[in-house]
């Protein structure tokens, strides 16, 4: 019964709302302040993005999106996403599998390392790769003798993107897999499943919503990363600009409506991410509710 505090608490509370609740005028005021705050801080900026994007007409909007530099920025962004996301998905699963299913020394150290990109300013995240691969570093000098350029080129963008986005899948999967014990996987093994079949038929279906959401976050962040990529990209128009960098370049040239037009693409990605979060949470709540119901029956 101790595993069910939130649902029971909520039921009780709704039932007793008259007993320990605020008067109507206070409730209304608090809700009004919240809505007003959210309107000013979150909604107004969102509205302004679209308003400015279409300020000079649909044609200008369309031209900004179909501009060759925009197209190349989209390409660079997609390339970074296409490399960073799969690598980070594999990492996320590998890290979650070893951390939640096995005991070994140094586990907490690994968990803290996964948090590093969260703790570090994006500017510093970019900087470490300049220090590592820049022209005056040993590695950078060695690579340049082979004509390989990392910093201020595409490889640098991909590496920086991978760095800032690598924790997302792992961070989603670890709590999900921690709550599911290994018993279902062990059951699959006793029934004769090979490791691959166990993963495919038992592990994957159980983590799919966490994996889905973690991957969405990872991809959204890979598309939208600004600071770290800004440091390593070198801002070469039409070559090493990602979408957010392109927005900055266009904005700094005072082509406001064009900048906001490109920004609407990024806002769309953000809204899709929020939608994905709601879907994943909804699916998972359903599942946990069922498990709770199950646990309840067993207690009774």
């Amino acid at each position: 019964m101790t595993t069910l505090p939130s649902t029971t608490a909520r039921t009780i509370r709704t039932a007793s709302i008259g007993g320990a609740s605020e008067p109507f005028w206070l409730r209304a005021t608090l809700i009004a302040i919240s809505l007003g705050f959210i309107f000013i801080v979150l909604l107004l900026p969102l509205y302004v993005v679209f308003q400015t994007a279409f300020r000079d007409g649909v044609r200008t909007y369309w031209n900004a999106l179909t501009d060759t530099d925009t197209a190349s920025a989209i390409q660079v962004t997609l390339l970074a996403v296409a490399i960073a996301v799969p690598l980070n998905m594999i990492f996320g699963f590998a890290a979650a599998w070893s951390i939640t299913r096995f005991e070994f020394r140094g586990k907490r150290f690994i968990v803290s390392l996964i948090d590093v990109p969260f703790a570090v300013s994006p500017v510093i995240s970019g900087m470490i790769f300049i220090l590592m691969f820049g022209a005056d570093s040993v590695l950078g000098a060695w690579l340049s003798t082979y004509g390989i350029k990392v910093v201020f080129a595409l490889p640098g963008i991909v590496i920086a993107t991978t760095f800032v986005t690598f924790p997302f899948v792992a961070r989603e999967l670890i709590p999900v897999m921690q709550t599911q014990s290994a018993e279902q996987e062990l059951a699959a093994l006793t029934l004769g499943a090979s490791p691959w079949r166990m993963f495919q038929l038992v592990t994957l279906p159980n983590i799919k919503w966490g994996l889905f959401y973690g991957t969405t976050l990872c991809a959204a962040r890979a598309v939208g990363e600004f600071g770290a990529v800004s440091v390593v990209s070198g801002h070469i128009r039409g070559e090493t600009n990602t979408l957010p960098l392109h927005v900055e370049v266009v904005y700094n040239e005072y082509h406001f409506s064009a900048a906001f037009a490109v920004a609407t693409l990024l806002v769309a990605v953000a809204l899709i991410t929020l939608g994905a979060k709601s879907v994943a949470e909804w699916m998972e709540t359903n599942k946990t509710l069922e498990q709770k119901k199950w646990a309840m029956e067993e207690v009774q």
């Binding site: 994006p122 927005v247 904005y251 406001f256 906001f260 920004a263 990024l266 929020l274």
Partner: peptide, 27 residues
């Protein structure tokens, strides 16, 4: 609109910082 409000809270997480920057400047 409570559910919508709840979902919107995450907006600053999801919106790329550059977009947030130019939008806030405009507001």
């Amino acid at each position: 609109g409570r559910k919508l409000l709840d979902a919107l809270i995450d907006l600053p997480f999801a919106v790329p910082t550059a977009v947030a920057g130019i939008a806030l400047t405009a507001v």
